[in-house]
Simulated scan of single mutants.
Amino acid sequence: MEDLLEVQDLCIEYASPRGVVKAADHVSFSIRKGEIFGLAGESGCGKSTTAFGICRLLRHPAQVTKGSVKLDGIELTGLSDEQFDRLRWSRMSIVLQSAMNNLNPVLRIRDQLVDAIVAHEPEAGRKLPGGQRI
C-alpha cells in the first residue's frame, strides 16, 4: 500500500528579535491510505505548527525552512500557490483543535464539514457515502 501523505525532515522556524526559534525540527512520518494517524505531544511542542506547515497555512514570521511533503507522491513544497490552492479542500484540509472557536456547537459536525466541502467543491453535492442525505 502506498503512502497517502509523506512528510520527511520537515523544519519550521519562527524569526524573532532574539534569533531563530525552531518550532518543528526534522519531523518525519507517513500516512497510508485507510490509516488513522494521531499526532500527540505537550502544549507548544509544534503539533499545530507542523499541521499548518503541511497545509501552507503558516503566518509570518513562521516559515518552512527544510523538508519534503508529498501527497499521493506529488511533492507539495515545489508547487506554486495557485497549484497548491487546487489541492486545498479537494485533496487536503485541516480541522483545528479549538473546535469551539471553529465549529458551531448547535450544528452537527458532519453538516459543518460537508458545508465546507460543498463551498469549495459544489459538484460534490450534499450526498454522503452510502447514499445517505444530510
Rank of each mutant, 00 (worst) to 15 (best):
residue 2 E to R: 08
residue 3 D to M: 01
residue 3 D to H: 05
residue 4 L to D: 02
residue 5 L to Y: 05
residue 6 E to K: 13
residue 7 V to T: 02
residue 8 Q to K: 15
residue 9 D to E: 10
residue 10 L to S: 05
residue 11 C to L: 05
residue 15 A to W: 00
residue 17 P to N: 14
residue 18 R to S: 14
residue 19 G to Q: 08
residue 19 G to H: 11
residue 22 K to G: 06
residue 23 A to R: 01
residue 25 D to P: 03
residue 25 D to E: 12
residue 26 H to K: 13
residue 27 V to I: 13
residue 27 V to Y: 04
residue 28 S to A: 06
residue 29 F to D: 06
residue 29 F to S: 07
residue 29 F to R: 07
residue 32 R to V: 09
residue 33 K to V: 10
residue 34 G to K: 09
residue 35 E to M: 05
residue 35 E to L: 01
residue 36 I to C: 13
residue 37 F to R: 01
residue 37 F to A: 10
residue 38 G to A: 13
residue 38 G to H: 03
residue 39 L to F: 10
residue 39 L to C: 12
residue 40 A to P: 01
residue 40 A to E: 05
residue 43 S to Q: 12
residue 43 S to F: 12
residue 44 G to Q: 08
residue 44 G to T: 09
residue 44 G to P: 10
residue 44 G to M: 09
residue 45 C to R: 03
residue 47 K to G: 10
residue 47 K to H: 10
residue 47 K to I: 12
residue 49 T to G: 00
residue 49 T to L: 09
residue 49 T to S: 13
residue 50 T to I: 05
residue 51 A to K: 04
residue 51 A to C: 14
residue 54 I to G: 00
residue 57 L to W: 04
residue 58 L to K: 06
residue 59 R to V: 07
residue 59 R to W: 01
residue 62 A to I: 07
residue 62 A to K: 03
residue 63 Q to F: 00
residue 65 T to N: 02
residue 66 K to P: 00
residue 67 G to R: 05
residue 68 S to M: 09
residue 68 S to Q: 12
residue 68 S to I: 10
residue 68 S to W: 02
residue 69 V to P: 03
residue 70 K to V: 04
residue 71 L to Q: 09
residue 72 D to F: 04
residue 72 D to E: 15
residue 73 G to W: 05
residue 74 I to E: 14
residue 76 L to R: 00
residue 77 T to G: 11
residue 79 L to R: 01
residue 79 L to H: 01
residue 80 S to L: 05
residue 81 D to T: 08
residue 82 E to C: 00
residue 83 Q to A: 15
residue 88 R to N: 04
residue 89 W to A: 07
residue 91 R to Q: 12
residue 91 R to T: 02
residue 91 R to Y: 00
residue 92 M to F: 05
residue 92 M to H: 01
residue 92 M to L: 15
residue 93 S to C: 11
residue 95 V to E: 02
residue 97 Q to F: 03
residue 98 S to A: 14
residue 98 S to Q: 13
residue 100 M to P: 00
residue 101 N to R: 04
residue 101 N to M: 04
residue 102 N to S: 13
residue 102 N to Y: 11
residue 103 L to G: 00
residue 103 L to T: 01
residue 104 N to L: 02
residue 105 P to F: 08
residue 109 I to Q: 03
residue 110 R to H: 09
residue 110 R to A: 14
residue 110 R to Y: 11
residue 110 R to M: 07
residue 111 D to N: 08
residue 111 D to T: 15
residue 111 D to H: 08
residue 112 Q to A: 08
residue 112 Q to D: 04
residue 113 L to E: 09
residue 116 A to K: 10
residue 116 A to T: 15
residue 117 I to M: 13
residue 117 I to Q: 06
residue 118 V to T: 14
residue 118 V to N: 11
residue 120 H to K: 09
residue 120 H to Y: 12
residue 121 E to N: 11
residue 125 G to R: 10
residue 126 R to C: 04
residue 126 R to A: 03
residue 127 K to V: 14
residue 127 K to T: 15
residue 129 P to Q: 14
residue 129 P to H: 10
residue 131 G to A: 11
residue 134 I to E: 07
